Amino acid sequence: MSNQHSAAEEQGQRHKHEGPRKHIVAFIFSILLTIIAFAMVAAGEINTTFIYIFLVFMALLQVFIQMSFWMHMKDRGHIFPIVGILMGVFVVFTIVIMAEYWAWW
């Protein structure tokens, strides 16, 4: 078994371990985003339209952090899951837009 590992290491195919530092930073950043979003809603004196836009922005930022650090979508070799997720997002947005047009007519 050591021959297989040494052959893979020589060819540069060994998986590089990032360590816990990036995961801890991503976790703290996720917690901070959640606290900021909760504080914005709890304040209550801010324009509701601004809060909705801000919450959507915070949610998209949270999704980016979760997918890049926890699901390792930033690594090489994840093109098919990324394409699948993007296609799913496209289908969901299309369904929501079509449902809104259907309800308005």
Rank of each mutant, 00 (worst) to 15 (best):
I97E: 11
Q62L: 11
I51K: 02
L86H: 08
W104R: 01
F64M: 12
A37E: 04
F54W: 15
S6P: 00
N47F: 01
I36M: 09
H23D: 12
M58N: 07
M71L: 13
Q4P: 00
V91G: 02
V91N: 02
F64G: 06
L32N: 03
A103M: 03
N3S: 12
M73W: 09
H5L: 10
I85K: 09
Y101W: 06
A59D: 02
Y52S: 14
F54S: 15
N47I: 01
T94Q: 06
E45D: 14
M71R: 09
A42R: 07
L61K: 03
M40E: 08
T48M: 06
L61C: 08
T49D: 06
H15I: 09
G77H: 04
I97L: 14
S6W: 03
Q11W: 00
Q66D: 07
H78L: 12
F57A: 15
G12K: 00
R76M: 14
F38L: 12
M40T: 09
R14V: 11
A7W: 04
S30W: 01
F27E: 01
I51W: 02
I85G: 10
V56H: 08
F50H: 07
P81S: 05
H15E: 07
K16L: 05
I95W: 05
F29G: 02
L55Y: 02
G12I: 03
H17Q: 12
A39S: 10
F90W: 12
H15R: 07
L86W: 08
A43P: 00
L32H: 00
L86G: 14
I36S: 08
L86Y: 04
V25A: 09
M98K: 14
H78V: 15
Q62E: 14
N47G: 01
L61G: 14
M98V: 13
Y52M: 15
T94H: 03
T48I: 11
A7H: 12
T34S: 14
A26V: 01
Y52W: 15
I51A: 03
A99R: 04
F93L: 14
K22Q: 10
M1H: 08
H72Y: 11
P81T: 04
E45C: 03
W70R: 11
P81N: 04
I95R: 03
L61A: 11
H23R: 11
A8V: 09
M67R: 10
E10I: 06
W104Y: 05
F27V: 04
P20A: 14
I31W: 11
L61Q: 05
A7D: 12
